[in-house]
Every structure is written in structure tokens, then in C-alpha cells.
């Protein structure tokens, strides 16, 4: 066993939350190098990217030294402030109607489920909604979206499996225009960002909306799974290059993963988090709240 045995022992001690770790950290360390190294590790273990963790900790260290403080509460608050500021760096776009929102992301992050919840959200704001089943690739994806559309009581536009997703969007947008629908939510097939042909397909879908419905506000949201690690930044970067993202929906926040990578997305890429998914029911979606997220982080 050797190494594996040792690691198993080590992991038994990781069950505590960040705040417990912080308390333990303050109890045993003075504000020295070791303290800041561990602070960095705490952030990394919540999936904050290594680079962002280094930067944030450096900032905390500088301010702490500048203000000559050695106080636990001060450093915690400082860290919270910095993280919250990072999240607020990218402002959340305000919705203007009519509005088309296309949801993109890698496979299995929860795009279809998110659309069901977002549809419900807009309905509760008294908006008329149409969902477009433009995931024509995954088996039974449109059946899945139909169930969500039924739950949210909204109209769905769908074609046969294997048909051109851009054609679905065309139909959805044309009919929404004719009916004066407020919001069109476009579901797309999950695609790994490294697949160039699939990303090109997405660009085409992007162009269809711009061309057919120029008067509408057109937003593109990347759906990210909170359990994802450092790869989230790579996903966001490539999807942003392809279709110019306007926001992020962070899903599966009801698990134990913290989604710490969002600090890098807001800070480095300037993409705001718009919604957070916290469960499997239609109403399990909340507009993202930076302060609450940071609080939940500790």
C-alpha cells in the first residue's frame, strides 16, 4: 500500500469545511509564509484556480502587512472582500425583451435541466417563453426538454433527432417573432470545447439568431458544473472565443463541490455568473448572489 495508505489517512482529515480549516489554521500559525501557503491551499482545495489563488493570497498578504494586522477576523474579512470584489468585477446583464438566450456547455453539465428552471423563472416574472430543442444530437434530449416545458407550462419548438440545430433555432425565433414572445431559450447539444467541428456548428447557430432576430437582446450563457475542476477556465475561454459569452449558470451547487473556479472566470475573463442551480426541481434556481456565494464558500 505505502503511498495509497498514507493518502487515505491524510484525506480523512479533509472533511472539515473551509471555515474549520481557517480556524485550525489561525490556531496554529502566525501570519508567516506558512500561513499564506496554507491559505492558498484552502482556496485550491475548493477548485479556485492555482493562479487566482496565488494572486488573491498575495493581495491579502500585502494588505495585511500594509495595515500591520495579525487579526484572524480581519484577514478573513479581507479575503471575503477581495473574493466578492472579484465576482462583482463583471456586471450581470439586465434582461431586455424580446430576449433570446442560448445555453452552451460541455456534456452533462445540466443545460436541459437549467433551461427548464430558467423557463419557470421567466414565467414567474410574467413573461411569455418559448424553448427551442436545438440539441438534436443526444438521444431523447428533446423528449427531456418537452417534459421540462410541460412543467414550466411553456411552448416548445422541436425537430426530429439528427436534424440541423440551426433549423430548430430558425423556426423557434421566427415563431417567437410572429407571436411576440418575450423570451426564447435555446438548448444546445453538449460539446467538448476542443472539438472544432462542433464549435463551428455552434457559431453557425449563433449567426442564425443574430441574422433572424436582430432586434432581440441576444445572450449566450455557459452552463458549468460546480464539480468541475481547473478545466472550467479552459471551457469558458474557448466557448467565449467561439460565441462571446454574456454569462454563466453554475449548476449542481447542492453537492459538496464549491465551484471556486468562478473567481477566475469573473476576474480573468470578465464573465459574470447569472444563475445558480441548487437542485432538481423547477424552482431550484436562484439569481446569483456574490455575497451569499462567498459566505457559503467559508
Amino acid at each position: 500500500m505505502g503511498l495509497i495508505g498514507k493518502i487515505k489517512d491524510a484525506l480523512k482529515k479533509t472533511k472539515e469545511g473551509v471555515s474549520t480549516k481557517m480556524r485550525l489554521l489561525f490556531a496554529k500559525n502566525k501570519l508567516g509564509d506558512e500561513f499564506y501557503d496554507e491559505l492558498e491551499e484552502i482556496l485550491i482545495s475548493s477548485d479556485v484556480s492555482v493562479r487566482t489563488a496565488e494572486e488573491v493570497v498575495e493581495q491579502v498578504r500585502e494588505e495585511a502587512i500594509g495595515n500591520k494586522v495579525k487579526d484572524e477576523r480581519f484577514v478573513t474579512d479581507l479575503l471575503k472582500d477581495i473574493l466578492e470584489d472579484t465576482l462583482n468585477e463583471a456586471p450581470v446583464p439586465a434582461f431586455r425583451y424580446p430576449c433570446v438566450i442560448m445555453f452552451v456547455g460541455v456534456n452533462g453539465v445540466g443545460k436541459t435541466t437549467t433551461i427548464g428552471k430558467v423557463a419557470h423563472y421567466f414565467v414567474s416574472q410574467n413573461k411569455s417563453v418559448t424553448v427551442a430543442a436545438a440539441d438534436t444530437f443526444r438521444a431523447a434530449a428533446s423528449d427531456q426538454l418537452s417534459v421540462w416545458a410541460e412543467r414550466a407550462k411553456v411552448r416548445i419548438v422541436k425537430h426530429e433527432e439528427g436534424s440541423d440545430p440551426s433549423a430548430v433555432i430558425f423556426d423557434a425565433v421566427s415563431s417567437a417573432k410572429a407571436r411576440g414572445t418575450d423570451v426564447v431559450l435555446v438548448d444546445t447539444a453538449g460539446r467538448l470545447h476542443v472539438k472544432e467541428n462542433l464549435m463551428n456548428e455552434l457559431k453557425k447557430m449563433d449567426r442564425v439568431v443574430g441574422r433572424e432576430f436582430p432586434e432581440a437582446q441576444f445572450l449566450k450563457f455557459l452552463v458549468l458544473d460546480a464539480t468541475t475542476g481547473q478545466n472550467a477556465v479552459s471551457q469558458a475561454r474557448v466557448f467565449d472565443e467561439a460565441v462571446d459569452l454574456d454569462g454563466i449558470v453554475l449548476t449542481k451547487l447542492d453537492g459538496t463541490a464549491k465551484g471556486g473556479f468562478v473567481f477566475s472566470l469573473c476576474g480573468e475573463l470578465g464573465i459574470p455568473v447569472v444563475f445558480a442551480g441548487v437542485g432538481e426541481k423547477t424552482e431550484d434556481l436562484e439569481p446569483f448572489d456574490a455575497e451569499q456565494f462567498v459566505e457559503g464558500f467559508f
Partner: peptide, 14 residues
């Protein structure tokens, strides 16, 4: 397990 999983993979697996 999704290969893109982050630090939480240990909790899930365990």
C-alpha cells in the same frame, strides 16, 4: 466519474 471533476472527486468517490 467525469474526468473534468475537480478537488471534490475524492469526496464523491469515497
Amino acid at each position: 466519474v467525469d474526468a473534468m471533476t475537480g478537488q471534490d472527486a475524492v469526496n464523491v468517490a469515497e
